[in-house]
Amino acid sequence: MNDYNLSQLKQLEAESIHIFRDAVGQFERPVLLYSIGKDSSVLVRLAQKAFYPGKIPFKLLHINSTWKFREMIAFRDKFCAEQGLDLQVHYNREGFEAGINPFDYGSRKYTDIMKTQALLQALKQGKYDVAFGGARRDEEKSRAKERIFSFRDKHQQWDPKNQRPELWSLFNARINPGESVRVFPLSNWTELDVWQYIRLENIPIVPLYFAKKRPVVERDSVLVMVDDERMRLNPGKKPAMRSVRFRTLGCYPLTGAIESTAATVDEIVEEMLRTRVSERSTRIIDHDGDSSMEQKKSEGYF
């Protein structure tokens, strides 16, 4: 190997930093969509590096569906305080007051109101013209074709048929008023790369990623953690304490846990290589209907 060669991880890091700087240079009102998950932690670290020794020149926006794991919220507040991040939290007040929940309304309707609609409200209120997200192309089939700069029309919708071609690292950020762009600096990262980077950089992540005895119930062959008293249990069902962890984090009633004893990053990677189940398979919302992720993206979901 030539001396002037970067390792793959350093190349990914350089590319992500380039993307952050490019977007901030081209847009007026950037925001980072912070989901508290491990990809968000990595995204924040890359943004910090991109503007070092300055501070991140934009806000973090968290869309709270009001059904997140409690540990996620606790982590969020601590992480943002420690890192000196400017956090804005938004939730769909109308939806919350109407008592929208995943049990009575189904995952699809609930996700639409408490996540997609909430996100659209917040982006509109903030007049953000660019929103950074932590999505990766390796997560799901329809995301393999997502652009790094992904154009959204006035209604925040994504049209897979009408994407702008993306060449070299020359990103086209031209939009009309009311339109916006989602930018995905982690597009070319894989799940393994993300773990690798967390390990290398010692990046704090929510403890739910690590195995621990937690109260869970089994529902449609998915292990769901009983995070608070709002969880509806089927008659006669009682939560059992099992050693589990989460590969992705979202709303606790919609996020499946996996049985595991992996308590460190190294153990998680080892388990990942052994079990060979793709990451999003624990997300219930991806599976409601064929092409479901693609549908949600068209509607404005991340």
Partner: peptide, 16 residues
């Protein structure tokens, strides 16, 4: 499997 070695190797790989 030596996971530490594996991870170090993956980290330092070349990219094509």
């Amino acid at each position: 499997m030596n996971i530490d070695k594996f991870l170090n190797q993956h980290e330092n790989k070349d990219l094509l």
